[in-house]
């Protein structure tokens, strides 16, 4: 069944079961693979995107629920990696393997839009994503740096 989604400012048509999680529509139907599959149960945060400005875990949202809303993925954050969060991430060289970092960056974007000056506790609670390389302390520092750069 075909339906339309608004992703990174463009309206795209998708022919899929509307109950398919948004994650798999992005990845397999729209070939936007920056958004990652990690756990599939709304825990690890690798699939984080923003929907109408709020960070959301796309593995746990049927695509149908995102119809009519504005979805932003890592690919749409900026044309040239110059979003404040991307700049902070580059400055602190946050990633190791990098697989979780799209989700980390998008979670940080969502957090900063609600809370421009988050504390350590705010960051931990709002993100709580999994990074198996253990970049958590750099993530915290980078979120704070991004808050300065916004």
């Amino acid at each position: 069944m075909a339906f339309e989604l608004k992703v990174n400012g463009k309206t795209v048509s998708v022919d899929a079961d509307p109950q398919t999680p948004l994650l798999w529509v992005l990845r397999d139907h729209l070939a936007m693979t920056g958004t990652k599959y990690g756990c599939g149960i709304n825990q690890c945060g690798a699939c984080t995107v923003t929907i109408d400005g709020q960070s959301a875990r796309s593995c746990n949202i049927p695509a149908a629920q995102a119809v009519g809303k504005s979805i932003v993925t890592i690919e749409g954050l900026s044309p040239d990696r110059t979003h404040a969060v991307q700049k902070a991430w580059a400055e602190l060289d946050v990633p190791q393997c990098g697989f979780c970092q799209s989700g980390q960056i998008m979670a940080a974007v969502g957090l900063l839009s609600k809370n421009p000056k988050p504390s350590d506790a705010d960051i931990d609670q709002a993100m709580n994503n999994l990074c198996r390389c253990g970049t958590y302390l750099k993530i915290r520092a980078a979120v704070k740096r991004a808050a300065e750069l916004v």
Binding site: M32, T33, G34, T35, T73, I74, E75, L77, S78, R81, Q86, W89, A90, D93, P95, G98, Q101, S102, I105
Partner: peptide
């Protein structure tokens, strides 16, 4: 690093 910042 740049490729890890935009998902590419």
């Amino acid at each position: 690093l740049p490729l890890l910042l935009d998902g590419s």
